[in-house]
């Protein structure tokens, strides 16, 4: 077990190196001169430009730039800074809470809605609620995030006026519509997953045994049926949480939330390579850590899993 964790942790190193390298390369490949973009229409002397290019290693070959960047992180925990001189860690610190809140609210919404809808659909199989879940989940999975976001803004924001449609000035209620938007696809998948897993499980021999033991139907479902059918749901939720930061880019932009996703979007436009790479590295790190936790949790829930 311990050896398994250590091995997994060691695997993080190449994963992170390769993914940052790819992101770095992509940012590097964006055409145009970032310094000129920074200056905008204002005139900038050649001397100033030279100094800036020097400071950000912009004249070095790509790989050298990359290694200098990694070296800075490893030796001095220096994640670089923006062209304005603001440290990337500073930006992350400021914007992380918004994205974290969004991810958390999304997680709660999709877990509750997905699992409850899935359970009820299975228990009322082929009845109205089940049909409703079947149809609505198809819609949730098929519609693009952008469309869902606009629809929610239109209905619950503009028409009904229940929730704000942009910004973060209204506490948790600011996060409801963005979180619903972000949760849509996963809620749909989760509901279907839980439904089919629970149906399978209710047909299984061990559930039949539990009934034969004289357990009440409610206990048969919760203790024997659900327990097993939720294992794949946990895996899915974990994998989904891990990739949620990526999803935040679109949603934070649609709803104008000042989080990491919006920052990535803006930084790509401004060709602020260090910021993009810094935040994306954080996303990747989060992804691998959550996946490790899910794998460990999986073993806890299903004793048949063994770590080698």
């Amino acid at each position: 077990m311990t050896r398994y964790i250590i091995r997994r942790l060691l695997q993080f190193i190449p994963v992170i190196l390769i993914s940052t390298l790819i992101v770095y390369a992509l940012v590097f490949a964006i055409p145009g001169d970032p310094i000129r973009a920074l200056a905008g229409d204002r005139p900038m002397s050649d001397a100033v430009r030279e100094t800036l290019r020097e400071q950000y290693n912009l004249d070095d070959p790509f790989l050298i730039q990359y290694f200098k960047y990694i070296w800075g992180i490893v030796t001095a925990l220096d994640f670089g800074s923006t062209f304005n001189g603001r440290p990337v860690t500073d930006i992350i610190e400021q914007r992380l809470p918004v994205t974290a809140t969004l991810a958390l609210v999304t997680l709660v919404i999709q877990t509750l809605m997905g699992i409850i809808a899935g359970i009820l659909a299975a228990l009322y199989r082929d009845r109205f609620f089940d049909r409703f879940v079947q149809v609505s989940t198809v819609a949730m999975v098929a519609l693009p995030t952008l469309v869902i976001g606009f629809l929610l803004q239109l209905i619950f924001g503009l028409n009904l006026g229940w929730f704000p449609i942009a910004g973060v000035n209204n506490g948790v209620s600011s996060y409801i519509l963005p979180a619903l938007t972000m949760a849509a696809v996963s809620t749909g998948i989760l509901a279907r997953l839980v439904r089919s897993e629970l149906l399978d499980s209710l047909k299984s021999d061990y559930v039949r045994t539990a009934t034969a033991k004289g357990m009440k139907r409610s206990r048969v479902i919760t203790r024997h049926g659900l327990r097993n059918s939720l294992i794949p749901a946990v895996t899915f939720i974990g994998a989904d949480l891990a990739s949620m930061l990526g999803g935040s880019i679109i949603v934070e932009t649609i709803f104008n939330l000042p989080g990491l996703g919006q920052q990535v979007f803006a930084s790509i436009q401004g060709q602020e390579g260090t910021v993009v790479v810094g935040i994306v590295t954080l996303f990747v790190l989060f992804f691998v850590v959550i996946n490790l936790i899910v794998d460990l949790l999986y073993g806890l829930l299903d004793p048949r899993i063994r770590y080698e």
């Binding site: 061990y206 039949r208 045994t209 034969a212 033991k213 004289g214 024997h224 327990r227 294992i231 829930l301």
Partner: peptide, 24 residues
């Protein structure tokens, strides 16, 4: 009937591996 099931009238199945709950 449930109160009799497993208490007064009990049953064992052919395939014990699938008939026992794998995660308990």
């Amino acid at each position: 009937r449930r109160r009799l099931r497993g208490v007064k009238i009990a049953m064992i199945f052919q395939d014990a591996l699938s008939s026992l709950n794998p995660v308990l």
